[in-house]
Every structure is written in C-alpha cells, then in structure tokens.
Design a protein around this nucleic acid. Structure first.
Lengths: 205, 205
DNA sequence: TTTCAGGCTTAACAATATTTAACTCCGAAT
DNA sequence: ATTCGGAGTTAAATATTGTTAAGCCTGAAA
C-alpha cells in the first residue's frame, strides 16, 4: 500500500471484527456507518479484547453527539468526511508517533536481560566475559521479544516480520528458535520466555 | 478552571513562549493567528526546547495547507473553529490518555489470595516455595476474577474477553476452567469461587 | 570447482493446553 | 414435587507447542 503501510480493508463490521481477532493491527480506522456491525459497536467489542489499540472514527455525519460518543468510547481521533488523504495520513502518524514507543525500543541496540547483555548489532549474548554469537534468526527473534518485553509478541506479527510468510512450517521453525533462545537464556531464572497459547510468546523480565 | 484542569492563558505568542519556559505544561493548545508570534512559529520554538510535549493547533482557517503544515510540525491534533468546548476537552483527554499512560491498564501484576500469591505476568500461583505454572486460560480467568474480587464477574464479559465469542461451547469450556481454578485454590478455605446462578462467578476473599 | 561448516528448515515424535462430549447435580420457577 | 436450564465434573478428542535430529542449502575456504 502507499506510504509504506500494510493495511486491510473489510466490507462490514463483522468481517472487520474477525479480521481484528485473527491478525495484529497497530491502529483501527472505523467507519461509523457500516453494514452488520456499526463502528461504535465494533469499537466496544475491540476494546473488550484490546483496551490499548488506537481507534480513529470516520464518518459523514458531523453531529456533535456522535463525536462525543466516539471519544467516550476511547477514540483517539475523529474525522468527518470529506477529508483529504493527506490529512488522514497526518492524523494517523500523529497518533502512531505517540503510541509506538517501539521507535524508541527499535533504536535501542543493546538490551540487558538479567545477567546477560544482548547486542542486537553484533548479534551477541554476553554473560560477563563469556560471549555467545547468535545466528541472524536467533538475534532477530530475541530482538522482537526484547522490544515487546513483558508484552505479548504475537506469532503472526513475529512470523511476518522475520519469516515474511506465516505458514505452518515457518511457525514450526519459530518454535525451534524459541527453544534455542530458552537454552541460551537458561542460566538466568529471572528471564523467561513463556508461551501464550494460541497467541504468541512473552518475554518476562 | 472547569473540568479539573489547571490552565494558563496568554494574550500572544511571545507571552506564551515565556510562560512555557517558566513553567511545566502537560499539553499546549496554540491558536495559529496570534499577535507577535504566530502558532506555527511558537510551535517550532517550543519543539526546540521540548520535542515531546503534545501540541494542538486551533484555528479559524480551514485551509488544507495549514492543517498539513501543523501536522508536519508535530501537532497531535488540529481543531478548526467553531468547535464545542466538549469536543476540545474530549480531544485533549484522548491525547493525554495516550501521553500520560504509565501502564495504568497493566495495573496490578500480583495478587495475594490467602496463602497463595498469583503473578499475572509469570502466570504462576505460589504457595510458599511451591510454585505452580498456570496455563494461559487459567491465568486469564483468574486475573479477571481477581480484578473483580468480591464483585460479580459476568459470564458474557469473561467469555468475550478471554474466549472472544460467547457461544455454548465456550461457556462449557469456561466451566471446566472454573473447576481447575477451584482445585488450584483448594488448600485455602478463605478463598472461594462461587457461582451466581444465571449471572457469572464471584471470587470471595 | 569441490568440499565443508554453519544456519535454517523440515520431519517426527513427545508433551501440554484447550475444547468437546457425556453425564451428573443443583437451583429456581411452576 | 416436578421440570428445565444452568453449572460441575471427568475423560476423551483435538490443537498447539516443545524437542531433537536429520536434511538441505549456501557461502567461504581449499
């Protein structure tokens, strides 16, 4: 898609809900007037499952009550049609700028994992004077886990990000790398990679 | 001031700049058309000193170029006059919700259940030195119960939150997990999960 | 160009987690 | 007291994850 975003478009509220449950999204842009499930209802359902994902409402209506209703549901912004694509993109970026502190974590080249020090650039895991070289995949996966420390790293997200394609075999491959990372980190009991069944993995530290 | 905010109002851009340098502000709402120093220039000056403070532009003009210009300067929102005070407040709160989010949502990670200690992050239930690993679903459900301790946890809510869909089979599944949790907690008579017929469950402690 | 080692994937099987099923029990309403 | 739907329990079935090792590919050394 243009501007380097990877986006999904759904024909109605129910399809959007199913899509949201299946994959990871950084932001939701909901049309209030949608077939089957309107934007407000969809936002409520999404909030039950994920209280944090940013939501922007999109509507032709310009009624004050609707705008207030939207913000009460925890909207991050509210755009009335007609609007320019530039403005929508600007507003999306304004929100993501605040939301994804990943940019900060992304920039971070070195993580401290208990007694270990993980250097993402050198791809090394050091414990005192003992330095272990990690393979590229090991380092990529550990980096993602560190960036999402104490939060869930979704399978889909990790697979798409490291393996590009999230098929069965790549998922098995990822499991293998989780095992390897657990072995690498096994000396440090305060650091743990736990599985979140059906969702992904979480680095606890 | 109304709504519990502590706000300062400045007659022009220069006064606002001096005010900003003197005191701490959580958010800036800048009118673009101001005497002495316009909103854009002021925003640039503020950004030099503080790249993080949220900025909202306020203007009578509705020109696209202005809006885009504002967002390029790192605006968090952009409101055109006339606007209602409610909407302004809603938009301010939407931004502050994101900005001042020191993981209030993640809230309490550890609960004490009589002799047991439940760690939601590690998904463990500890009794002295004996630590039991809970499965994801067990931990999710127990967490919901703890968050609603001594209050009723409604079936629908729990199902939507953990199982996504609240159909018959998932309700049966939830029953199974209630049984498991009761077994896990069986050594502690002061903690009990009771059923509220037709409504849900209540964690008594 | 051939060989080899490292890195990654695939396969096979083991262990866990979750759902479904079958049946029992209980509480509220008639 | 009877009936019915929700709730409780256990076990089997299914799905997901964990682990080990074999196989395959590729780039660097010989």
């Amino acid at each position: 898609m243009a501007k380097g975003y990877d986006a999904s478009l759904f024909p109605d509220g129910e399809a959007a809900y199913k899509g949201f449950m299946r994959d990871h999204y950084d932001i939701c842009i909901l049309d209030i007037m949608m077939p089957k499930k309107d934007g407000f209802t969809l936002a409520k359902d999404i909030r039950i499952v994920n209280p944090d994902v940013p939501v922007i409402f999109l509507t032709a209506k310009n009624m004050k009550e609707d705008v207030l209703e939207g913000f009460k549901l925890g909207a991050d912004d509210y755009i009335t049609k007609p609007f320019s694509m530039e403005e929508l993109i600007m507003r999306i970026e304004a929100i993501l700028r605040r939301t994804s502190q990943e940019n900060l974590a992304n920039a971070q080249p070195v993580f401290t994992l208990g007694r270990y020090t993980f250097d993402t650039r050198k791809q090394t895991l050091a414990e005192g004077d003992e330095v272990v070289k990690l393979t590229t995949k090991e380092a990529d996966l550990l980096k993602l886990l560190c960036q999402n420390a104490n939060k869930i790293l979704e399978r889909n997200y990790a697979l798409k990000s490291i393996w590009i394609d999230d098929n069965y075999f790549n998922a098995r491959s990822m499991d293998v790398y989780i095992t390897k990372l657990r072995k690498h980190l096994s000396k440090e009991p305060t650091v743990e990679i736990i599985n979140v069944h059906g969702k992904g993995y979480k680095l606890i530290m």
